[in-house]
């Protein structure tokens, strides 16, 4: 038991080391090699643009159920009008970034790991190298940049759809008075809440990109390896996102104190 725990810890530390190395290589590549903007754009369309529906639907349903639950609880104390602001805070600070990241890791992270993994085992990565093209420049940098650009926008989109959905549920369906609802929403949401959403989105994008590219580049053992790569990418990045979210929640509370 102790040895198993020790080994898991060792492996996690080693894994973190490998991710760190890949991140360092990727950042370095952005400076020493010209960024391939055409590939970046292609990936933004692939990663960002095509994730919009999934992310919007996630936002709508999350905002809707959250607003309903808050209303059921709060109206007992006659605070039904606070539904909008509470939902918005929850969306910006926690639900929006986290759920968006989990959806994107399932949709995009898995695809990246499978694609790079296939290229790895079919020697396409070696073929790139044989032509003097660094796989980090050609495969990792465009996907990472695309994720980092897209994620904050996707998070914002999820939050916006969530807030609209909560308005529809609370005001249109459950009959909360519109004027105080909007006043609360206005008074109790701050730019710092949006900042938290965007910062979390950025950090989660880095996690998804690193883990997915790493799993792809480390794929071996033919078809069996390619089958494992996306699963590992999704599991590892999802757990990392949840863990990192806790850390960020506390860290960002120091940066943006909620005393107001």
């Amino acid at each position: 038991m102790i040895t198993a725990l020790g080994r898991t810890t060792m492996e996690s530390v080693q894994y973190l080391g490998q991710l760190g190395l890949l991140t360092w290589e990727t950042v370095k590549a952005m400076f020493v090699a010209p960024i391939r903007w055409r590939l970046v754009l292609q990936q933004i369309i692939e990663v960002g643009s095509r994730s919009q529906v999934v992310v919007a639907v996630t936002g709508v349903f999350t905002g809707a159920v959250f607003a309903a639950q808050i209303y059921f609880q709060f109206q007992r104390f006659g605070m039904g009008t606070a539904v909008g602001s509470v939902t918005a805070l929850a969306l910006f600070r926690e639900l929006g970034p986290t759920l968006t990241a989990l959806m994107v890791s399932g949709r995009v992270g898995a695809a990246i790991a499978a694609e790079i993994g296939t290229m790895k085992v079919t020697e396409q990565v070696d073929a790139l190298r044989s032509m003097g093209v660094h796989p980090i420049d050609y495969l990792v940098v465009p996907r990472s940049v695309a994720l980092i650009v897209s994620m904050p926008l996707l998070v914002a989109e999820a939050c916006a759809f969530g807030i609209i959905a909560s308005y529809v549920i609370a005001v249109q369906m459950l009959g909360v008075a519109e004027a105080p609802y909007l006043r609360y929403l206005n008074n109790y949401t701050h730019p710092s809440d949006v900042a938290i959403a965007l910062i979390k989105g950025f950090v989660f994008a880095v996690i998804i990109a690193c883990v997915a590219c790493h799993e792809g580049m480390e794929t071996a053992n033919g078809a069996a390896g390619v089958r494992r790569a996306p699963t590992r990418a999704v599991v590892i990045s999802s757990l990392s996102i949840l863990g990192m979210n806790l850390v960020l929640t506390f860290a960002l509370n120091i940066v943006f104190p909620s005393s107001r």
């Binding site: 020493v32 079919t122 020697e123 396409q124 070696d126 073929a127 190298r129 044989s130 032509m131 003097g132």
Partner: peptide, 23 residues
């Protein structure tokens, strides 16, 4: 290191056993 090999690799072409076409 990988980046310094580019010059050498441009002099040499390699046909992979699996062809390794970009699919």
């Amino acid at each position: 290191p990988e980046r310094k090999l580019t010059a050498v690799r441009r002099k040499i072409g390699m046909l992979f056993q699996s062809a390794a076409l970009f699919d």
